[in-house]
């Protein structure tokens, strides 16, 4: 399988461990990622807060680049990126006038034909059967709380992925790979996201609640598919301990980490050794 790859700023910055992990994992599954040439920022929260046109134009440029590269499908591992890209893609596909306008602005013809995937969808394309066949070391010791965060399933009519409030797709993979999953309440709660810099208190409060609920339901780790969630839940655990006096000690895995582990890849190849919270 050969698909386009849009890393977005996070995977080339603070979350390069995520990139390392998913590249290693997907390589093992024979999925070739081809990074989109000259990709630019997806616009994230900032663009649509400022300017509607800009929030379409930025992803439109990226979509145009993907189309130029001939990619029918493109992985955007960061949920914010994928949501912005999908939103723009749908708007473009359904509006001839907008296509013309945007093609002018981004100086490249854009048609909105590239399908944007999140990481879970890429694994779904690989398929449970193939994963099971490649399974080397079942994840017996894991009792995982799958954490989707706020954006992976939202807005539901844009991303059209899984049940918006009670998603189950990650659980399906983990169960197949031999892990236990816990039924808990905070799958789609907000971790504080981009408030890390603006209001650390908010982030600590929200992340603390998430970690507490996961632990209360018997989880010994969390599995995420978002770089921002990982930062807040992993890196902020010492701060949470300082503030709330609770030491959660929960390992935060990327979905690709656990899949990679099950495929028998060493933790170092997956960048797990660079996480802040290690195995208890």
């Amino acid at each position: 399988m050969n698909i386009g790859y849009y890393p977005g700023c996070a995977l080339h910055g603070s979350s390069d461990d995520y990139e390392e992990s998913l590249r290693a994992c997907l390589r093992a599954l024979d999925v070739q990622l081809q990074e989109i040439d000259e990709w630019i920022c997806c616009g994230a929260t900032a663009a649509h807060a400022l300017n509607q046109k800009l929030s379409t134009a930025l992803p439109a440029r990226n979509l145009a680049l993907a189309e130029r590269g001939g990619f029918g499908e493109m992985l955007a591992p960061c949920p914010m990126c994928s949501m912005q890209l999908i939103k723009a893609q749908k708007a473009l596909a359904g509006n001839e006038g907008l296509r013309r306008e945007m093609s002018g602005i981004v100086e490249l013809e854009v048609r909105g034909t590239t399908r944007v995937l999140n990481l879970i969808q890429v694994f779904e394309q690989v398929g449970l059967d193939r994963l099971k066949a490649a399974l080397k070391s079942p994840l017996k010791s894991l009792s995982a709380a799958c954490y989707y965060g706020c954006l992976l399933t939202r807005p539901p009519d844009v991303v059209e992925f899984d049940d918006c409030e009670q998603p189950r797709s990650m659980e399906a993979f983990l169960t197949a790979l031999g892990a236990k999953t816990v039924d808990w309440s905070y799958r789609t709660e907000c971790c504080g996201g981009g408030m890390t810099l603006a209001s650390e208190e908010t982030v600590l409060d929200l992340s603390h609640k998430i970690l507490s609920n996961a632990a209360a339901h018997g989880a010994n780790c969390l599995v995420v598919a978002c770089p921002m969630c990982h930062v807040n839940l992993d890196m902020k655990q010492p701060d949470i301990e300082r503030r709330y006096g609770v030491r959660h000690g929960l390992v935060i895995y990327y979905l690709s980490d656990v899949v990679g582990m099950a495929l028998g890849l060493p933790e170092s190849a997956l960048g797990i050794n660079r996480h802040f919270v290690g195995k208890a």
């Binding site: 049940d163 918006c164 409030e165 009670q166 039924d183 309440s185």
Partner: peptide, 19 residues
């Protein structure tokens, strides 16, 4: 809950009914 007998309907996952 999430299971609906008609495609036009959707459930309330957020209320945890059935869970």
């Amino acid at each position: 809950g999430e299971k609906q007998d008609k495609a036009s309907l959707a459930g309330y996952g957020e209320y945890g009914y059935g869970q």
